[in-house]
Amino acid sequence: MGANGETVTVLKPQLKLILAAVIACMAMTAAPRVAMASGGGGLDEGGFVSDVLGGSHPLFEAVGFYLFGGLAAFSAIAICFTKDVVRMAIWLFATLGAVAILYFLLTAYFLGVIQIIVYAGGTLVLLIFGVMLTTKSPSMQFAVSKIGLAAGGVVSLLLFAALMGLVLGTDWQRGEPTGSIPVATLGRDLLTTYLVPFEVISVLLLVVMIGAAYLARQERE
């Protein structure tokens, strides 16, 4: 074991790393399977679930929901208790990704993808960029008073209780759950039924672009 022991001493951290990498790879290949499980994406022919189990199997949906819903809730709560802003942004990243997969479970494929592109790829990067521009040192934190924390906690817990009462106490009017909507339908509706809001949003984006550029510009003497 002499020579082997030496090698193993050197390789010890790597073993864990490789194990982590293998697990990450497995998760990475499993996650889309669960996400796609609720019926594939519109045109999925020959998908596992739609053929073998006949549409979305409740078990797959349950696993997906508890896994990614749990991740979303956990990372959202973790944001509350994190002091470092960049770590908060990374937790937000986890929440956004998990919510995107929840959209996939709800068969809103287009929305899930847009959530990742706009939120995770755009807004989040912007936020982190904002942190980098406004932070003097990576360890900079602001202490929050105990009273403030307690008041915030009480307010949000009360709000949570009220919401839970509302959610569980109401008999929601139910219909038949709808399947996925083709992107083409969504696009056509955006340019017909929702044309006015669509155009208003476009104008708003233009205004925001000009406004943000005006606000962020460097004053030149």
């Binding site: 889309p32 796609m36 594939g40 994406g41 519109g42 045109l43 999925d44 022919e45 998908g47 990704g97 494929y109 287009f110 993808v113 847009i114 990742i116 592109i117 995770a120 790829g121 755009g122 083709p182 992107v183 083409a184």
Partner: peptide, 17 residues
């Protein structure tokens, strides 16, 4: 692997992430 009708967007999203 999965023939989705938002296939292109998935790839763009992943490159953005």
């Amino acid at each position: 692997f999965r023939n989705m009708d938002v296939g292109l967007l998935v790839i763009v999203a992943m490159l953005g992430v």
